[in-house]
C-alpha cells in the first residue's frame, strides 16, 4: 500500500500568494472584519503552547471515532441485510427515507435530553450523521452486485457464511469504502456543530468559546484552519484505503 502525497508546487504557490494578498489587505485596512494570516498563525502558536490545541483535537477525534465506528458497525451490516432481503426493504425503506433527510443537527435537543451535556451526546449526534448514509450505501452496494457474481457464487455450492464472506463482502467492499470516505467527511462536519452546543471541549467548542469570551476572532479562524487541515488528512487516509488491491478491482474495470 502506497500513500503518495503529491506535493504540487503550483497550488501551494497560489495559496501562498493568496495569503500574502490577505495580509496586505489587512495591513492597509485594519478593522474588525477578519484577522490577518499572521495573527491567525500566532493564535495557533498560542494554542499549541498552552496544550489546548492537542487536547481539543484529541477530544474531537475521539468523538468522531466513536460515532463513526458505531454508525458503521450498525449501519453497514443492517444495510447489507436490508439490501439483500427484498421484503425487509419494502417494509423498512419508507421509514429510512423519512429519517434520512433529517439533519443530524436537528437531533441536538434530543441528544442533550437523552445524554446530557457531554461526550455521549456528541457521539450520538455523529452516530446519527453516519448511520443513515452508511445504511443507504450498503443497501445500494448490495443492489449493484452484478447478478453474474451471485449466480457464480451459488453455482459453487457455498454455505451461507462462505457466500457472504467470499462473494457478497468482496463485491460490495469497494463501494463501502467510497461511502465510508464520504461519511467520515460528514462526521467531521457534524462534530464541529455538536461541540458548539453539547460539550465544552473540542475544536467546535474552541470556535464558539473564542467568540463568546472576548471576540477572539484570531482563535476562531485558527480553529477553522485546524478543522480544515484535519479534515483533509482524514480524507487522504480514507483515500489510501481505496488503493488496497483487493478493493481496487472495481476502479480499474477493464
Amino acid at each position: 500500500m502506497r500513500l503518495k502525497l503529491h506535493v504540487q508546487p503550483r497550488p501551494l504557490l497560489f495559496i501562498g500568494v493568496l495569503l500574502i494578498c490577505w495580509q496586505i489587505a489587512i495591513n492597509r485596512h485594519p478593522g474588525q472584519l477578519l484577522p490577518g494570516p499572521l495573527s491567525v498563525l500566532r493564535a495557533i502558536g498560542d494554542l499549541m503552547h498552552s496544550g489546548l490545541l492537542l487536547k481539543y483535537i484529541v477530544a474531537s477525534l475521539f468523538r468522531v471515532t466513536w460515532g463513526f465506528a458505531l454508525g458503521a458497525s450498525l449501519g453497514i451490516p443492517l444495510g447489507l441485510a436490508i439490501g439483500w432481503n427484498r421484503r425487509a426493504e419494502m417494509a423498512l425503506n419508507p421509514l429510512i427515507q423519512i429519517f434520512r433527510p433529517i439533519s443530524p443537527l436537528a437531533w441536538i435537543p434530543v441528544a442533550i435530553l437523552w445524554f446530557g451535556v457531554g461526550d455521549m451526546a456528541a457521539v450520538f449526534l455523529i452516530f446519527v450523521g453516519c448511520f443513515f448514509p452508511l445504511l443507504l450505501t450498503a443497501m445500494s452496494a448490495v443492489h449493484n452486485i452484478p447478478a453474474l457474481y451471485i449466480d457464480a457464487g451459488r453455482n459453487f455450492g457455498l454455505s451461507p457464511f462462505a457466500f457472504v464472506s467470499r462473494v457478497l463482502y468482496p463485491a460490495v467492499a469497494p463501494q463501502l469504502v467510497v461511502g465510508m470516505r464520504i461519511t467520515l467527511g460528514i462526521a467531521w462536519l457534524v462534530v464541529v456543530a455538536a461541540e458548539m452546543i453539547a460539550v465544552n471541549s473540542g475544536l467546535g467548542f474552541l470556535i464558539v468559546d473564542a467568540r463568546n469570551a472576548g471576540n477572539r476572532y484570531d482563535l476562531v479562524v485558527a480553529g477553522m484552519v485546524i478543522i480544515g487541515a484535519i479534515g483533509l488528512l482524514l480524507d487522504l487516509g480514507m483515500r489510501s484505503l481505496e488503493r488496497v488491491k483487493s478493493f481496487r478491482w472495481s476502479y480499474s474495470e477493464d
Binding site: P146, L148, Y149, D151, A152, N155, F156, V167, P170, A171, A173, S246, F247, W249, S250, E253
Partner: peptide
C-alpha cells in the same frame, strides 16, 4: 458449472 459470456470471473 455454468460459464458466462464475460465478466464471470471474480475481479477481486
Amino acid at each position: 458449472i455454468l460459464v458466462f459470456q464475460e465478466h464471470g470471473v471474480f475481479p477481486w
